[in-house]
Amino acid sequence: MSHVLRTEGLNKRFGGIVVCDDVNLTIAGGEILGLIGPNGAGKTSLFNLISGVLRPDSGTIRLNGKAVNGEPLYRRARLGVARTWQHMLLFRSMTVMENMLVAPRHYPGESILRVTVGRAGVRSAERTARERAHAILDRMALDGTADMPVTDLPFGQQKLIGLARALMNDGPLLLLDEPMAGVEGAAYETMQRVVRQEAESGRAICVVEHNVSFIRDLCSRAVFMINGRILQDGPVEELISSTTLTELYFGA
């Protein structure tokens, strides 16, 4: 089976602190992988290494077989690594739609040349992006919020916008950093449904989440990390029922 993401012997340390210790991880298209472990286990750091926020000390990151180690953050996004953030990092002075519109893999408004000279092309690309944004918001029942400032939305909906913005990137890999933290009710249901739909459409998805029932409902496979190392990689039920891991998790 071909893997969308494969990391080989990934290492990263900050001074004396090891955040990533020989991590070998694979995710296939259509799969939702749960990434669990106590705080400080290196889960977010692993996301940062994969998406390009951090450079690994050694090891390789492959996207669809191609090594992307040397690519900076923005180029990896263009290659198809989409991610969300634990603290959302929405563009606070912009509306929901504006947040969505800067997010496609290729954004014509980034180039001053195209904005000034190739206006027709920019306009049609904007139209396409706007349609795509409406479709995504529609799926989350948030289309009515398109022209509202993002900061006016309740927390759960802001979390959804974080996901919606990442979905503007139609790449093969999606990294979700604690999508459920602080989310409940209707937003919870929506989040679950949309993540599942994305996997069904063939995306490889990796979720960092402390909410065990969310992991159990969505993932078939999970990885348990501690001290930057992968301790166990296997079926979710096996990991969750393991007393050793539970003890490690709660630091008993």
């Binding site: 926020v53 990092l89 563009f91």
Partner: peptide
């Protein structure tokens, strides 16, 4: 729009491919 986004959250902005 891109400039505003960059000023608001540069990290998220870059991670979107900008």
């Amino acid at each position: 729009r891109a400039i505003t986004a960059m000023r608001d959250e540069e990290l998220a902005f870059s991670a979107l491919g900008r």
